[in-house]
Design a binder for these strands. Sequence first.
DNA 1: TTGACTTTTAATAACTATTATCGTTTAATA
DNA 2: TATTAAACGATAATAGTTATTAAAAGTCAA
Lengths: 147, 147
Amino acid sequence: MTVSDANQFRALCDSAGIAVTHQRQVVYEELCAMHGHPSPEEVYLRVKERIPAISLATVYKNIHTFIESGIFREVSLHHGSLRVETNAHSHHHLVCTQCKSITDIDADEFLLSSRGQSLPNKFLPERFSVEVLGLCVECQQKQASLS
Amino acid sequence: MTVSDANQFRALCDSAGIAVTHQRQVVYEELCAMHGHPSPEEVYLRVKERIPAISLATVYKNIHTFIESGIFREVSLHHGSLRVETNAHSHHHLVCTQCKSITDIDADEFLLSSRGQSLPNKFLPERFSVEVLGLCVECQQKQASLS
DNA sequence: TTGACTTTTAATAACTATTATCGTTTAATA
DNA sequence: TATTAAACGATAATAGTTATTAAAAGTCAA
């Protein structure tokens, strides 16, 4: 970590209104250095290499702080508990970034909206996310070898 | 539940290769009757009204059986544990419906793909899902009243 | 229909991920 | 530097889910 990196982190914390602590900085640095979609546990294991006395709870708390401050994002807003999709129609979801409520929206209705109309329920869109769901190569191969 | 409903459920189970049991049928019926995105606990509470002796574990197992059989779907494939998004670029996710692995895909790359080209990593797309993330009315109001 | 075999079930223990508590330490700032 | 609020570590507690096991119910060939 260079001096300019440290200054940058200080500036980041200042604008987010959070304190600069050693633990926080190391969690941040490790997150930046990690690729993919690490779990708190994975972050903890790496941070622990540098701060052996750190607590898992501290890692959790800092990750949450970063997410609340918009410094990092969670991959999915609806982890936590299994939810069953009871709507059999082709539809999308309006997901509230704050309360995490999920509202269904007809596939047709969404097409209209994306052409400039407003969304139902006075929903205020912040970002769109397209999920492509399917099979990765490994699972395609597993499936092929089974049949 | 009519006789034809019962027959329909039997046919459904037959084609899925699973046994027809009373508990399974009641879980199925309640799921069909529920709107939104119920949690196993919520399903359990309703099923319990009809089968007081049922166990929560049975509800879980039947929900999983339905999902594996493609009779119902989960709202999100990545519930279970918090994941941090470390990729700051605008991107989408390739989510494997089997192993639930998440692969990042550049927003640009995705545009190309949707015009007919193939996806990276030999990913086999099954369905696309558009998520609109933002604020629901309630949270917009909460936010307005705070500031 | 019966008997052999398989699946499902209920009860409950166990496990994983996460959060709350609380006494101590550290950072911000006057 | 002293004060105060924020953050920390240890650990207990909780929520959601899964594993285990013996009993009950379902399946299927004869």
